[in-house]
Amino acid sequence: MLVYDTQLSSRLLLGTSRYPSPAVLTEAVKASGTGVVTVSLRRESSNERSGQGFFSIIRSLGVRVLPNTAGCHSVKEAVTTAHMAREVFGTSWIKLEVIGDRTTLQPDVFGLVEAAKILCDDGFQVFPYTTEDLVVADKLLDAGCRVLMPWGAPIGSGQGLNNVPGLRAMRARFAEVPLIVDAGIGVPSHAARALELGMDGVLINTAVARAGDPVGMARAFADAVKAGRSAFIAQPMLPSDVAIPSTPEIGLAHLV
């Protein structure tokens, strides 16, 4: 998968939040085979310095980091957070989140487009967390985004792909744009489904981190993503509203 001129070996991106321990996080990242993990910025206590320890762990993983602007509800917050992230993590990649609804964590797509324009103009390579709305997607691409991250379902909900026709429409309209489903995926079959639809990748966090065995689940997601991609390339059959017998009817014995 090619995103912003960077070739990624895996179509699975992994979040780093909500794991039972740093050791489990480390093993899950390895088991997933991912080349990209998402991270965030939060207030740092001068006594605890917990962020420094976490950053050491992330650097030891040898993967790219994709900082997010999670929790930002305004353009200004998101843009300022992006600048801070660029300095701390040394990357111009930013997963841009401008949250518009506190219950569904649905993106504020108006603020998202505005922030994306500001950041793209400032040299950032923006990964916008968006809906499947085609008009918004068009405006994000006009703003300078070269990848889109439509939601599958509300963040952390594990509901899967709530609008398959919407994702299909995105795939058809933006054939050349990398589409990475971000948010809402709960089990590997959801991820496989996304890849079968032609999505280029998925970003998973809670579904792995909150599994009974996060390392085992990371491995299962890696398998599902590979299977889904292989199925997409193999061109799945078209569904039918009626039954079509798979066993030939010609030659059927008359036994009545």
Partner: peptide
């Protein structure tokens, strides 16, 4: 946002709000 390179140039005033952030887990 105050870049690292500008921290020596910023003169603080009474009541200023300083935010210091660092890497954290994220999804």
């Amino acid at each position: 946002f105050i870049p690292k390179t500008q921290r020596l140039d910023i003169v603080l005033s009474e009541g200023d709000r300083i935010e210091v952030v660092a890497p954290m887990q994220g999804g």
